[in-house]
């Protein structure tokens, strides 16, 4: 028996010594859409249920009111102005610095806000991204380059007190915080971290550091709407000729 088992182990060791390995040879790939046609797994629905009940209650929370439907539009929209104003105001409050101008990239506006009550859920639809509100110190010449990019892109929302005209896809007559742009001056700008890092082809901003307090633009919007409501006012946003097109393009 003992001899047999030694023989047996020896045989196995021999097998291992000339052991095999598995080598990848061929890969087939597929991306499955996770579509609503797939039946939902009830185990997961049950797992989520206590959480989703509470989430829905929060999402349905009314935080404000607007008398008009706000929709995004080029080259300027009330909704975009509202968002850019929110960024300027909340960045000023959060960072404690005098912000000269705020930019909101047009592509970052993801929904309209319908007239009537505004819920937390509406704000999530408007700003589903987890973009952070950040501050950047920029030279006037850099802002001019950004404005030219914005003009070529058809116009992005900018905050109250600032304006420019789009002429031949260039930004002209640039006013920052009530004064004509000075290429050599330094301005404090509020932006999303996405844009500050060169997103949406704003590569000219990329070399410049930004201050970040981990504050989401979505949270800024919620806080801003709550502040307006607390002051007894509705949320209202108008087109104020901040961005105008001086020729037909």
């Amino acid at each position: 028996m003992r001899i047999l088992s030694i023989f047996y182990s020896g045989f196995i060791l021999l097998l291992l010594a000339c052991g095999t390995t598995q080598v990848p040879k061929q890969v087939s790939y597929l991306g499955y859409p996770v579509s609503p046609k797939i039946k939902a797994d009830t185990a997961l629905i049950n797992l989520l249920q206590p959480y989703s009940m509470e989430v829905n209650r929060t999402m349905n929370n009314v935080i404000g009111f607007t008398p008009t439907t706000m929709t995004k539009r080029l080259p300027e929209s009330g909704l975009g102005n509202f968002m850019a104003d929110c960024m300027k105001e909340m960045a000023t409050q959060k960072f404690g610095l005098p912000v000269d101008i705020a930019f909101m990239n047009q592509g970052g506006i993801r929904a309209s806000i319908n007239k009537g009550n505004i819920t937390i859920g509406n704000v999530y639809e408007l700003m589903p991204f987890d973009n952070l509100l950040v501050l950047q110190e920029l030279k006037g010449s850099v802002i001019e380059a950004l404005m030219n990019h914005i003009a070529a892109d058809g116009g992005w929302p900018i905050s109250k007190g600032s304006s420019f005209k789009i002429k031949n896809k260039q930004a002209v007559d640039i006013i920052i915080n009530g004064k004509p742009l000075d290429r050599n001056a330094t301005y404090i700008t509020a932006n999303s971290d996405y844009i500050a890092q060169g997103g949406s082809d704003a590569a000219m901003l990329k070399p410049f550091p930004f201050q970040n307090k981990g504050y989401l633009i979505r949270d800024a919007l919620i806080e801003y709407i709550k502040q307006i409501t607390a002051s007894g006012k509705p949320v209202d946003a108008k087109i104020e000729n901040r961005v105008t097109s001086s020729n037909n393009e």
Binding site: T20, T21, Q22, V23, K25, S28, Y29, Y32, V34
Partner: peptide
């Protein structure tokens, strides 16, 4: 989406 990769292996001597 969920990705899928099917790897085919061949057994060869280590």
């Amino acid at each position: 989406q969920m990705g899928r990769l099917d790897y085919n292996f061949s057994s060869i001597k280590r």
